[in-house]
Design a protein around this nucleic acid. Structure first.
Lengths: 148, 148
DNA sequence: GAACCATGGTTGATGTGTCAACTCGTTGAT
DNA sequence: ATCAACGAGTTGACACATCAACCATGGTTC
């Protein structure tokens, strides 16, 4: 333990992991399923929602996305037939969307396990979860209503 | 300690931190300096290189970027006068680029400290660095020459 | 009711990232 | 010497993200 912890060393290591890890997982997901990370996040959220449908605002809060980003993404996904927009800003998962997320889930979880879960010990996973929660708490304490 | 560690809980916590933390830092950086994360990474690498110039290939390896991404990014930065391309695929930092990275560094480091360094203990920072190194080692063991 | 304003959602312009296809110079085998 | 193969770099097309400006609606205040 040092009294002056090297923040920048930890930051640079974290940055390198972030770039490489998400790059690898997204590349594998895209190659084998044709879905982007954004597609996957939306479909995953929809699938595990009651009745496979949610309000737009729930997606925005749950994923912490900007509203314009969500709007563009939903428009593209509706054009591809993965979702449907219903009156009242309600988003429905289509059958095609349900198929694709089911196939993608296996691929995604396998990749997460291969490059992340299998590499770290239970203690490390727990430590990372705690670290993440602390940082997230710091980020959301000031701007609880993410005023993008 | 559990025998079946909950990988997905750690993954989801990490994902949330990743999205919110980088979003916040990049937003602050962009607002106060006009530089994107990509701009900052390039300028930072250039600044701390000998003679403020590097070969393209060094940037690609150091930042683990795709070649086309780097090419597009360097073209845009040259148009803005932040860098110069010299024969032999050598990239030079211009005076304007040096000014901007100097101003941005303070902003960036302050943000990293505010949302990251100050939130975590020395042990947590060390643990995160170890975790990151392990994951990166796993990612680079198979494809050491990142065949993008 | 009328003016006001806050909020959810959309749109268009622009900057950014990715993929595939291409050029060009070097290398190595025959 | 020629040809094939490889890697570095570029380009163009497209998907994605961000910002600002815009519309609609539902209060709140006077």
């Amino acid at each position: 333990m040092t009294t002056t912890p090297d923040v920048s060393a930890a930051w640079q290591a974290y940055q390198r992991m972030r770039v490489l890890l998400n790059g690898q997982i997204n590349r594998e997901l895209g190659r084998s399923t044709g879905l982007s990370e954004a597609d996957y996040d939306i479909l995953f959220f929809l699938e595990q929602s009651q009745d496979s449908s949610v309000r737009s605002i729930a997606l925005r809060c749950g994923l912490a996305w900007e509203k314009s980003r969500l709007s563009h993404q939903l428009r593209r996904m509706e054009q591809r037939g993965l979702i449907e927009k219903a009156p009242g800003a309600v988003i429905h998962l289509t059958d095609k969307g349900r198929e694709q997320i089911a196939a993608a889930r296996d691929c995604h979880e396998a990749a997460v396990r291969r490059y992340f879960g299998d590499v770290l010990s239970a203690e490390q996973l727990a430590a990372l979860a705690t670290i993440s929660d602390q940082v997230v708490a710091r980020l959301t304490q000031d701007s609880p209503h993410h005023a993008h």
